[in-house]
Amino acid sequence: MNSNGKTWKSILLAGLIALGLGAQQQPAHAADQETLIVAGGCFWCVEADFEKVKGVTEVVSGYTGGTMENPTYKDVTAGGTGHYEAARIHYDPAQVTREQLLHMFFRSIDPTDAGGQFCDRGESYRTAIFASDPNVVEAAREAKAEAEKALGQDIVTPILPRQTFYEAEDYHQDYYKSDERIAFSSVGLGVKRSTAYKRYRNGCGRDARVRALWGDAAPFVN
Rank of each mutant, 00 (worst) to 15 (best):
E142R: 12
I109E: 13
D154L: 06
E138T: 07
E47H: 12
T97E: 02
P71S: 01
H172W: 06
Q33C: 05
L151H: 07
F50I: 10
D133W: 01
A217R: 15
G205K: 05
Q95S: 00
A39W: 08
D32N: 10
A78N: 03
I11S: 07
A145N: 13
T157G: 00
G115F: 09
I89Y: 14
A145E: 10
T112P: 08
W44G: 07
L13T: 10
C119Q: 10
G82S: 13
K149Y: 07
Q153N: 13
A48Q: 15
S132N: 14
P93Y: 03
W214E: 06
V137I: 14
K198T: 14
S178T: 13
L21N: 08
L213M: 09
M104C: 01
M1R: 00
I182E: 09
A18G: 02
Q173P: 11
I17L: 08
Q33P: 04
V191Y: 14
E58F: 06
G152E: 12
H83C: 06
S108W: 10
A196G: 14
G40I: 07
P71M: 06
G82D: 10
G22D: 14
D92I: 02
N2D: 10
F118M: 11
G116D: 06
S194Q: 14
L189E: 11
V210Y: 08
E85C: 07
A183R: 11
E148S: 12
M1Y: 03
S132M: 02
L13W: 03
R162Y: 13
A183M: 09
A94N: 04
E34T: 04
A30S: 11
P93T: 07
L12P: 00
S186A: 15
G5D: 03
E51Q: 15
C204K: 04
A87N: 15
T112D: 09
G82L: 10
P134R: 01
E85I: 06
A147N: 11
V96S: 00
D92W: 03
E99T: 08
G122T: 04
W8E: 01
A140Y: 00
N70G: 10
S185W: 12
A128I: 07
T164F: 00
R121K: 15
K149N: 12
T112S: 14
H83S: 11
R211S: 08
I11L: 13
A145K: 13
A114Y: 08
A28T: 14
Y166Q: 00
F130G: 09
T157Y: 00
R209W: 07
L16D: 07
L19K: 15
G65F: 03
E138V: 00
S108F: 12
T97M: 04
A168R: 02
A212M: 02
G215F: 01
D32I: 01
